[in-house]
Design a protein around this nucleic acid. Structure first.
Length: 103
DNA sequence: TAGATGACTCCGG
DNA sequence: ACCGGAGCCATCT
């Protein structure tokens, strides 16, 4: 366990992800702005400890999906009715949820 | 200690 | 709209 990413930081990131409403999404960058650090670190935290949280509600800034677990994520979007412009591409203006303003 | 790597973003062509 | 390069933060080898 050679990780300097503190448990507190991990917990903060996971907490934000859990707060994303059903049918909405947020971005790595937005979470980074909310809890600190950088987008890549957030991605790393989700990759390592994102199992128990709705990680599919976290996407890239341009609305494209992470190159991982695409099938399951898309299935979730269909179930939750997440606004999408194309298969594998979301309607960000409509689906985006900001972790800071919580809107 | 230095260099490479990654579930990222931004900017230019 | 698609592709490539530079910047960033922490981890890994």
């Amino acid at each position: 366990m050679t990780h300097r990413t503190t448990e507190a930081y991990v917990a903060a990131v996971l907490d934000v992800v859990e707060q994303v409403p059903r049918g909405r999404v947020t971005t790595y960058g937005a979470i980074a702005e909310a809890v600190g650090g950088g987008p890549r670190q957030v991605g790393n935290v989700l990759a390592r400890h994102g199992g128990p949280v709705p990680w599919w509600r976290v996407v890239r800034a341009d609305g494209s999906l992470p190159p991982s677990h695409l099938e399951e994520a898309q299935q979730r979007y269909l179930e939750e009715g997440t606004p999408r412009r194309a298969p594998g591409r979301l309607d960000m203006p409509a689906a985006y949820w900001d972790p800071v303003t919580r809107t």
